[in-house]
Design a protein around this nucleic acid. Structure first.
Lengths: 158, 158
DNA sequence: TAATTTTGCGTAACTAGTTACATAAATATG
DNA sequence: CATATTTATGTAACTAGTTACGCAAAATTA
């Protein structure tokens, strides 16, 4: 059957982004499950952030990823449950809580990097080694950051 | 602060797709809320499908959109709750249930089209009237359909 | 220094999809 | 024609994010 979302042109774009992303997420999850790895797709960026920065607060990670802070907290609580991260209150600022990778996480990182590299290669295949999509995406990201989509829709009414 | 997902290159792409889509969804919802319209962003494609085809089964819509059938059922139940769709069992095949737009939906369609047109224009602005992104996306969609992402990652292991 | 504002974290309720499983009706097969 | 398979729908439990709200600590302001 013909793909209605593609047929819709511009109108179908947002649905296609969703659909494609869902495929990435659920198939990455499948990949981890098949290999018996107890991590989830979206933990990737947290692992990388904490590998690079050693310790970060919830707000640090929210700002770096542009994900809302409750979203980050949900991620961290699951990673904590699986023993990959731990946290400690800042002694100087009692509001802040620093998060860091556990010993288990650090020991597992080399193995995880092999999976992530395989994922990167698979993605390059899908893009046919053309990184134009990333560039075009960045244009949209810049534009939507400057004037958001809600406002643009309102401006285009009547 | 610098955008970590963009800095990640290929590795950050899937997160960026998710993030961008979330912005479209939540900001479209905001747009509807501000205008006092009681519909949700993802109902758009169902409205268009049923406007074109008159009556369709759950599986018809799942196949046309490449969304899982439980996903479609969830959509339809909410649309039904708001009085936009209704359904009737097929008399010949008792397994099938046909869905169609209600009178309320048909009367509201002209108004809804004005919102969707504003959304289309806003999207064109964000893309700077360059439909290259849609073309590139279609390449990825074709490739992931032929060999899925899980399999590609596995092939790239070791 | 007392009152106000801002910041950081956390929870609740929500949208939007998925996979896994169950059931009944229709179809295919031996 | 009885049995097995496929198809269509539906439910449950899950991932992954959001906005709205509350509270306490720190920072700012009067």
């Amino acid at each position: 059957m013909e793909d209605f979302l593609i047929k819709m042109g511009y109108t179908g774009l947002t649905g296609r982004l969703k659909r494609l992303n869902d495929q990435f997420v659920y198939q990455t999850k499948q990949f981890y499950d098949d290999l018996g790895v107890d991590i989830e797709p979206n933990w990737h960026m947290i692992f990388l952030l904490l590998e690079k920065e050693e310790r970060l607060t919830v707000m640090d990670m929210a700002n770096a990823t542009r994900i809302s802070h409750p979203g980050i907290i949900k991620l961290l609580n699951k990673m904590k449950k699986n023993g990959y991260v731990s946290s400690k209150k800042d002694v100087d600022d009692q509001r802040k809580r620093y998060w860091f990778l556990t010993k288990k996480a650090k020991e597992k990182l080399p193995e995880l990097h092999t999976y992530w590299e395989a994922g990167d290669l698979a993605l390059r295949e899908l893009l046919e080694n053309n990184d134009e999509l990333l560039t075009l995406l960045q244009v949209v990201e810049k534009n939507i950051y400057e004037i958001d989509y809600t406002q643009r829709m309102k401006n285009n009414m009547k």
